[in-house]
């Protein structure tokens, strides 16, 4: 009896040793040198593999950032400054300055603003609808409302508002990875600089048609009249292709452009109710 136990123990141990030896030599033979910092950087990244940095996944981003000497064009929008600081520490480099951004949907074509002129009855996919025709309204630029951006969002930061038929962004969840920007076939979503208290001023329209047809398609379309451009003291507003654009890097949130817009295409969000002109002046000085 004892001999059976002994033989079992010995033979199994021998087997184990032989296997270990083989594994050791194979591992030695096929060893590939890898910068250990790649693992460290990957560890520091959020690990969402969202592709917001432009790479296929966090590992690829880590490889690229270790290989490169600078942080030029390399940023993890999800992790933000904190993560980048950690990476800088690992790589012994200077921390890059990156401003947090947030996605904004530049279309306000709710059913009451934008008349429905047909009924779409195809695959529920914006790109397919976009290649087919203008969509359920006459606006060839506006949101198609089929939610491809929402599907693309990995951070639960978007949902479709069933009443307006437009996507809504939850600012707190948005990490500005840009997945929705890429998903939208009509280029409606933009990443804008994140402001204090999630305040936003932007032209909620991307219609490049002339005033007449744009207005006909949607009541709150930007008609490219240029009134906002004139009133802006900070060169933040430019007009091209019959469309105004407010540069979020230059805008100081003075809100002067909002009331002059004849169609109400410029939206101001998360602001307190308007104060008197004098107080507004003070606000501007502070800003």
């Amino acid at each position: 009896m004892s001999s059976v136990v002994l033989i079992t123990i010995i033979s199994l141990s021998l087997l184990g040793i032989i296997a270990a030896l083989i594994l050791y030599f194979v591992a030695q033979k096929f060893k590939v040198y890898e910068d250990p910092r790649i693992d460290q950087v990957e560890e520091a990244l959020p690990g969402a593999n969202c592709g917001g940095c432009g790479f296929a996944g966090c590992r690829n981003f880590a490889e690229a950032i270790v290989k490169s000497d600078t942080f030029d064009g390399l940023n993890c929008p999800v992790g933000g400054g904190e993560t980048m600081a950690k990476i800088a520490e690992i790589l012994d480099r200077k921390v890059p300055e990156v401003e947090p951004r947030v996605a904004v949907v530049r279309c306000n074509g709710t059913p009451e603003h934008r008349k429905k002129t047909s009924e779409y009855n195809g695959a529920l996919n914006c790109t397919i609808a976009n290649s087919l025709y203008t969509g359920e309204s006459d606006c060839p630029y506006g949101c198609l409302g089929l939610g491809e951006c929402v599907d693309a969002c990995d951070f639960n930061a978007m949902y479709m508002d069933s009443e307006t038929g437009l996507p809504v962004i939850i600012d707190d969840n948005c990490v500005a990875c840009g997945a929705c920007v890429k998903a939208c076939p009509r280029n409606i979503i933009e990443l804008r600089k994140k402001a204090r208290k999630d305040r936003k001023i932007y032209v909620s329209c991307v219609n490049e048609d002339k005033g007449g047809p744009a207005r006909k398609a949607c009541k709150v379309a930007c008609i490219g009249c240029g009134k906002c451009e004139k009133v802006c003291n900070y060169d933040a507003i430019t007009i091209s292709n019959n469309l105004a654009f407010i540069d979020s890097d230059k805008c100081v949130f003075c809100r002067k452009c909002v009331p002059v817009c004849p169609t109400g295409a410029i939206l101001e969000l998360n602001f307190p109710p308007r104060k008197t002109a004098k107080k507004e002046q003070e606000e501007k000085v502070k800003a």
């Binding site: 195809g122 695959a123 996919n125 790109t127 397919i128 290649s131």
Partner: peptide, 12 residues
């Protein structure tokens, strides 16, 4: 199933 819708998208 909207087979052709997606194939068209894939083709593009």
């Amino acid at each position: 199933r909207p087979l052709l819708d997606y194939i068209r998208l894939g083709k593009a």
